[in-house]
Amino acid sequence: MSNPATEAALNRSGLTISRRDDVAMTHVALRRGRRADLDARVSATLGLTLPDTSRTVEAAGQMAAWAGPEQWLVIGPQEAGTDPSAALAKALNGVASVVDVSDSRVIFRVRGASAADVLSLSMGIDLHDKAFKPGDVAITHASHLGVMVWRHADGQGYDFACARTYAVDFGHWLEDACSKRGVFA
């Protein structure tokens, strides 16, 4: 936390913010006309069906998030001595372009019963239960920083993936938004 006052305010808001550093992220972009092949191979490799709309899907510790038309972000654990992106690149060779983006972004996790109420004020997109359901993902910006956000399956929190080089600024903004809104919203 940046300072004790922010921490205290955050505690009162009942929200927790953590940073997920232990993840591998892979960008998967469809090659022209290979959707059926891609689906088959992704299903065989990850046990997932890639979503066509702004949703996330999860299976066996792996998550695939829609990341733009015909593009997805596959997120899974980063274990020592493994290279999930390289493995995926091999599996999807010829049907998708696969790029390791594990270090491109930093994921911040916000959890707490009031997360939706508090963050809805800070985001330019509508986070209301009816508009942004568990499993929904959006590519948007928060304050003036680009961010990809998805809502946890239990509806009690969000992950924010922001560009790594903006992470310090984004972390401050997130703390500030959560602490300020938690107390004064």
Binding site: S54, G68, P69, G124, I125, A138, I139, T140, H141
Partner: peptide
């Protein structure tokens, strides 16, 4: 058409 309605500043 992909993301839904967004504000001009995006």
């Amino acid at each position: 058409p992909h993301c839904g309605e967004r504000a001009l500043d995006e």
